[in-house]
């Protein structure tokens, strides 16, 4: 029997221990057993992947783009959550703000999340550029409260919303997950409203290097995709990790982030 695959993950919530112990237990006794290593940020994790310390990295979309850049495209994505294929950025403002689209942000202040958050900083600027807004036309309030975690803690996005509620910003750009976590605009009637929703893009994936053979990767992926929402033993892990099922990667969903990183001249390292 071969050694277990070592999967890296960033510890962005106390729940990651429970989640990964659950996933490790799910793989126990399968043809592709695994263990996990936790990192404090994505930079360390990708370094460990490149150094061969880990076989797989549970990467955000920015970590994926940077790994592609550092490996000159040699890395590959093995799987992602169903929710990772339909990620979106939501632009929200105070209810009754009158904002009807990105172009209305001209001359306004937009609160952004941590500078390394794809959903709350990098892609919002990209979408503004696509809407024809030139640098300087929108005043950015950057809130770097969870740098290194790529916005995974959601803390900077919550701070961006606080800035809107406190009238320190006219609008905020946040991920769909944070929008859902606050109950959209339904639990705060008269407080916030959505005025623009981005096209879908891809978020996290399991990233591997060529050093991981198909013989080892394939059984692992097949077993991962077998996790079942209707199985009471699997359900708690899927709920905590925020998915209903694991799916094959939707790579075209990263195109907008590759473009944004190029436009904003974001480096391939941390």
């Amino acid at each position: 029997m071969s050694a277990p695959l070592i999967v890296g993950s960033v510890a962005y919530t106390p729940n990651v221990v429970t989640i990964w112990e659950g996933i490790r237990d799910y793989f126990a006794g399968s043809p592709a057993e695994m263990d996990f290593v936790l990192f404090s940020n994505y930079g360390r994790q990708v370094d460990a992947l490149l150094q061969g310390t880990i076989d797989l990295a549970w990467n955000t979309n920015l970590a994926w783009v940077r790994t592609v850049a550092q490996t000159k495209g040699a890395c590959r994505a093995l799987a992602m959550r169903d929710t990772d294929t339909v990620f979106r950025t939501m632009f929200v403002a105070r209810a009754g703000s009158g904002l009807g689209g990105l172009e209305d942000l001209t001359g306004r202040r937009l609160a952004l999340g941590s500078r390394d958050s794809a959903q709350a900083a990098i892609l919002p600027v990209h979408f503004l550029t696509r809407a024809g807004l030139t640098p300087g036309e929108v005043d950015f309030l950057r809130i770097d409260s969870d740098v290194g975690k790529h916005g995974d803690t959601g803390r900077s996005e919550l701070d961006a919303l606080r800035a809107v509620l406190d009238d320190r910003a006219d609008a905020a750009a946040i991920g769909i997950n944070t929008w859902e976590a606050i109950g959209r605009d339904e639990l705060m009637p008269g407080a916030l409203e959505l005025f623009w929703e981005s096209p879908v893009y891809s978020h996290c994936n399991f990233t591997a290097l060529p050093a991981l053979s198909e013989e080892r990767a394939t059984p692992w992926v097949e077993h991962l995709l077998g996790m079942d929402w209707d199985n009471p033993a699997h359900r708690p892990i899927l709920e905590m990790e925020g998915l209903r099922r694991w799916v094959v990667p939707r790579l075209e969903g990263y195109a907008s982030l590759f473009e944004a990183v190029r436009e904003q001249q974001i480096g391939s390292r941390w």
Binding site: T13, P14, N15, V17, T18, T153, G154, R155, L158, L161, R162, L165, T178, A181, I182, G183, L187, M188, A191, L192, M240
Partner: peptide
């Protein structure tokens, strides 16, 4: 007038603890 920031506090503080913790 409801303090809407309570929702943001709820999200942030519960995210900082493990499942099952109070």
């Amino acid at each position: 007038m409801v303090n809407h920031a309570i929702i943001l506090d709820l999200v942030e503080r519960t995210a900082a603890v493990a499942d099952g913790a109070t």
